[in-house]
């Protein structure tokens, strides 16, 4: 048991980390009280982008809007376009997530949005999990979970099978 434990730790520490950053440009253009946003990456991506937008003064994250945004390809670039109502000038938090779960790249920007002015900013999306953890850790983790789930389902199935045979 100790051997397997040490082997797991050795494998985790010895394998190189994955790529951990993505860079994009966020353009914000308010128009008639609606903020038109465009996030552009200079590479081809296929994931849905999740955008959460909220204002710091809002009470709690339940005030946040989350938008699923589909990608559109323009040559070698990937563009995500989304919009949200903006009525007054102020500080906003925009959190962007590309990819799923622990493999996701997460970006965070705090633009000051004025319904009358356009602006653009640089967005840095980071996968902090990938920075330090070898790529196989997540699949191994899910494989362990699959075994545990299989055990739970198997035990319940066995119990139900025996119950079916009761007289």
């Amino acid at each position: 048991m100790r051997f397997w434990y040490l082997l797991l730790v050795f494998c985790c520490l010895s394998s190189p980390a994955r790529a951990a950053s993505l860079y994009g440009t966020l353009k914000l253009e308010p128009k008639n009280g609606v903020l038109q946003a465009e996030l552009r990456f200079s590479q081809i991506l296929s994931n849905q982008l999740l955008v959460w937008m909220w204002q710091p003064r809002q009470n709690g994250w339940q005030e946040r809007r989350s938008l699923p945004v589909e990608p559109s390809l323009e040559g070698q670039e990937t563009v995500y376009r989304f919009q949200t109502p903006v009525r007054e000038a102020g500080q906003w938090y925009i959190r962007t997530t590309l990819g799923a779960g622990q493999a996701a790249y997460i970006g965070f920007s705090q633009p000051y949005i004025d319904p009358k002015d356009s602006g653009s900013s640089f967005v840095f999306l980071k996968n902090s999990f990938a920075e330090t953890v070898p790529a196989y850790v997540q699949p191994v983790g899910y494989a362990v979970y699959a075994l545990v789930a299989l055990f739970a389902v198997g035990l319940t199935a066995l119990v139900l099978r025996r119950l079916e045979q009761r007289t």
Partner: peptide
Amino acid sequence: LWHRFFGLDVTLWGPMHLVGLTGFTF
């Protein structure tokens, strides 16, 4: 242990979290 080795993953559907959710369900 998972968090100590691999850091704070930000999802409920992380492998160890799913073990807990499966336990609650069963």
